[in-house]
């Protein structure tokens, strides 16, 4: 059977890396996702939003 995994450009099927911090033990992949989430949230509330055109009620 053909190996299907190399159908991806970046192979994530290799063993992951983990961060230990006290009792916390998290995969780098999950940590990246959570950090990006926080970053996107911060950007969403700080980046200027384009001005909308005034409309009549």
């Amino acid at each position: 059977m053909p190996n299907l995994v190399p159908a991806s450009l970046i192979d994530l099927s290799r063993p992951g890396h983990y961060v230990h911090w006290g009792f916390i033990d998290i995969s780098v992949a999950n940590l990246v996702v959570i950090c990006v989430m926080v970053l996107v949230f911060v950007l969403a509330i700080t980046l200027p939003f384009p001005h909308g055109r005034k409309a009549k009620r």
């Binding site: 099927s13 290799r14 995969s27 996702v33």
Partner: peptide
């Protein structure tokens, strides 16, 4: 929370 390999899991 984890997935096999280096994939993000169920954060």
């Amino acid at each position: 929370m984890n997935e096999t390999g280096s994939y993000p899991g169920q954060a």
